[in-house]
């Protein structure tokens, strides 16, 4: 298991308390953080929504199944799904291997792009991880 100082935490995305990330600017990609993939362990299945689905903030948009558990994914801000990463459905290990790159999950069109800046920046997320672990 990774120590907190070993986690990859890029500074060009925003983070949610449930460990999803979203790009700071368009295209707004959504995925899970290195912390989340490390905690879940090897993923065995990724379930993602249909394109064009409209979701509110906090809505479940899919599931990540690892060898340990089945976990829900929650959308950090409201928006419409514009793309899903089919490659991670074929090879869920991409989420473990490259959670911010090849392992992205969906792209959305935010209902209000300004919502993104209301999420945690990398420093706030680091603090959140320190406080909760």
């Amino acid at each position: 298991m990774k120590e907190l100082d070993e986690l990859l935490l890029p500074d060009d995305v925003r983070y949610a308390e449930d460990h999803e990330w979203i790009s700071e600017r368009a295209p707004y990609r959504v995925g899970v953080s290195d912390f989340a993939q490390d905690q879940l362990g090897d993923l065995t299945f990724v379930e993602l929504p249909d394109v064009d689905k409209v979701l509110a903030q906090g809505d479940e948009f899919g599931t990540l199944e690892s060898t340990k558990s089945v976990s829900s994914l929650y959308l950090p801000i409201a928006g419409r799904v514009t793309a899903v990463n089919e490659a991670v459905q074929d090879d869920p290990g991409r989420v473990n291997g490259d959670p911010y790159g090849d392992g992205w999950l969906i792209e959305i069109e935010p209902a209000n792009p300004a919502d993104v800046s209301g999420l945690m920046d990398v420093e706030a997320y680091k603090k959140h991880l320190e406080e909760t672990n």
Partner: peptide, 12 residues
Amino acid sequence: PLWYRAGAVKEH
């Protein structure tokens, strides 16, 4: 140990 660095899938 639940798993090591390689992960449970590679271990299996």
